[in-house]
């Protein structure tokens, strides 16, 4: 038996990650389609048959998906690290595998939610809608449109970008929790709780040109027009910064003993 070059281990590691994520995504969509789409759809259809055409239902799919992929990335971070270290991976490779796998998961999940939204919205236009918040608004150019029925690729792309941001934040939190003890976690949590409202307060008092600048960064134009590319670029830059933070935190990560 001969040890093969380390590059052959990467496809195997990615297959492992995809299988693990695939199971998670499968469970999520089984619940979402069952409880978030089919069950309310049946209820709305039953109500329409008794009360007439006025009844209409709907749900958003992007925020629950973002929370889910964030948790998935965070929760699997610790067990992946242990498993890959056991099998001879460097920390650099481990973080690349994590980033690559959350990117693939984001694209796949973005595809599924976009397809799901377009199918439901085109098949049951008078009964039920699946919204893809923000992605739809940016795709159609304004907050007025929430229910997508077209612009498949743009909504897919924007969904994937939003999911990637959520996953990278989940990954960063997962590594942070794995590396730190209770006291540090509490200090950082307290800092975030204090700083976020402070930043929001400061933002309110900023001069108009600053507000306009931040607005343009996320694609808000004049007259309420929303352009998708600055929004996507900003989210991708933030995601890249978060991933860089995750890679930095991962550089000196160690296995915690015993039966870590």
């Amino acid at each position: 038996m001969k040890v093969l070059p380390s590059s052959t281990a990467l496809p195997c590691a990615l297959r492992y990650k995809m299988r693990q994520s695939g199971i998670g995504i499968g469970i999520y969509f089984a619940f979402f389609i069952g409880l978030g789409v089919l069950a309310p759809l049946i209820v709305v259809a039953a109500l329409q048959s008794t009360q007439g055409q006025g009844t209409f239902g709907g749900t958003d799919v992007i925020f629950s998906s973002m929370i889910f992929v964030g948790i998935l990335a965070g929760v699997s971070s610790s067990s992946d690290f242990k498993f890959f270290i056991q099998n001879g991976f460097s920390r650099g490779k481990i973080v690349w595998i994590s980033i690559l796998s959350i990117a693939i998961v984001s694209v796949a999940q973005g595809l599924i939610i976009t397809a799901l939204a377009l199918i439901v919205n085109n098949v049951f236009p008078t009964l039920y809608s699946v919204e893809v918040l923000f992605a739809t608004s940016y795709a159609y150019g304004g907050f007025g449109v929430m229910v997508p029925t077209s612009h498949f690729f743009l909504i897919w792309f924007l969904s994937a970008v939003m999911l990637f941001l959520a996953s990278s934040i989940g990954l960063l939190i997962g590594i942070f929790l794995d590396r730190t003890g209770t006291v540090v976690r509490l200090i950082v949590c307290a800092t975030v709780i204090v700083v976020v409202p402070l930043l929001i307060s400061i933002f309110q008092f900023l001069p108009m040109w600053w507000k306009a600048f931040f607005g343009r960064l996320v694609g808000f134009g004049e007259n309420g027009h929303m352009t998708p590319w600055p929004f996507a670029a900003t989210l991708l830059v933030i995601s890249a910064l978060v991933c860089a933070g995750a890679a930095l935190l991962n550089r000196r990560r160690e296995i915690k003993r015993v039966n870590a």
């Binding site: 040890v3 067990s79 001879g88 870590a260």
Partner: peptide, 21 residues
């Protein structure tokens, strides 16, 4: 240390359980 090609020649079995449960 942290060198994948070299690490693939080494394997540690220890009381720590690093396999996914």
């Amino acid at each position: 240390i942290d060198n994948s090609p070299a690490l693939r020649h080494l394997y540690l079995m220890s009381e720590d359980n690093l396999f996914p449960p």
